[in-house]
Computed example of a mutant assay.
Amino acid sequence: MSRNGQGPGRGPADGQGPVRRHDAPPQDTAILVGHFVLPRGASFSAHVHQVHQLLCTARGLLRVRTERGVWLLPPSRALWIPAEVPHTTESAGDAVMLGAYVDPASCPGIDWPEPTVVAVTPLLRALVDHLIRTDLVPEARARAEAVLLDELRPLQVASVSVTVPDDPRARAVAEALRRDPADGRSLAEWGRTAGAGARTLARLFAAETGLGFGQWRERLRMQCAMPHLAAGLPLEAVARRVGYASASSFAAAFHRVVGVTPRAYFPASARGGPGQTPAESRHAAPPR
């Protein structure tokens, strides 16, 4: 991978396919940083790396999928993806993705077996920006790499993934709620349009998603809320869009599902708005 925007493998590609291996070429550094300009909807199809990846964004919202769940990453959060873990990455809006590719031999103390969310502190952001430079002498680069690894702080943040049921009756309900998460109909009311009773739908959701219907809908609402939060919409507006009567009830549900409050996950300094962030203005380059 080069540092001018060309990443491992073929770069952004739409659609899903077989898992591809994106091996980084030999390098004389422990951490190699690349950047990728991703227009809305662009994606990297399923792939693995032979090295660890610290994935974050200078602007916009990224959606990362693995077998273990789905994570949505604003600029305030990054995801540590262990080597050999298959994943897909897509932009939930215009985004600038930053990827730090880490040689496993350089970080024996980081043995996280699963994808792990970390806080993007001002220092971590500055180090990622610093390591994208090509003019660092080896000693300076090694010092910055060591500090970056020391700065990784795991967060207890849950995935917001939801499984869509296979049964066509439950699937119809799930797809309708994905289109309009604010729809507050009960299972009995849904049953009149889905062709199944409330008990049957409840059983199908539990058996095919691993969640009760109420839990499933709540998690879906949090997933649908995240792009709005990243765009900087007021909490009250986001709450109404996903089916909550007040900002406080939405914030309580978000904390219950995700593990932190909306404002903790999307700090004001990381929420969207017009213009480029400093990191984006330095790194933006046309995709290849």
Rank of each mutant, 00 (worst) to 15 (best):
C224L: 08
A170E: 01
L233F: 10
A196H: 07
Q156M: 15
Q156V: 15
L220Y: 03
L61Y: 00
A158K: 08
L148K: 00
W71Q: 03
P108T: 02
R153G: 07
V37A: 10
V147I: 09
Q6G: 09
Q27Y: 10
T209D: 12
L235T: 03
G99Q: 08
A119V: 04
L201R: 01
L54V: 06
E139M: 06
R282A: 07
S248A: 15
P8S: 05
R221Q: 10
A140M: 14
V164I: 15
P12I: 01
A207Y: 12
W80V: 00
G195F: 02
D111I: 10
A231E: 11
A170C: 06
H228Q: 11
G259N: 03
P267V: 05
P25I: 03
V137K: 12
A126F: 10
G5V: 08
G272C: 00
V128T: 04
D111L: 11
G34Y: 10
R221N: 03
G273F: 00
I110G: 01
W112Y: 07
L32I: 14
L54P: 03
E114K: 12
R133G: 09
F254T: 01
Q223R: 14
D129E: 10
R271N: 09
G272I: 00
P26A: 14
G99L: 11
S91H: 03
L201Y: 02
A188D: 14
Y101A: 05
V257G: 08
A188Q: 14
R171E: 15
R40Y: 13
R153P: 06
R133P: 05
E218S: 12
E151C: 15
A237L: 09
A251W: 04
R179D: 13
T193R: 11
A105K: 08
H49Y: 04
T89C: 06
A198T: 07
H35A: 09
T134H: 09
W190F: 14
A158D: 11
S76Q: 05
L73I: 04
V19F: 00
R288K: 10
T121S: 14
V242D: 04
V162F: 04
W112S: 02
R179S: 13
Y244W: 13
P165S: 15
C107I: 01
R282W: 08
S43Q: 14
R59Q: 13
M1N: 10
Q276Y: 13
R63A: 09
L123M: 12
A253R: 04
R141A: 02
G272S: 01
R288Q: 10
V238P: 03
V102F: 06
R217L: 06
A144F: 03
P122K: 07
A95D: 01
Q50M: 07
P75R: 00
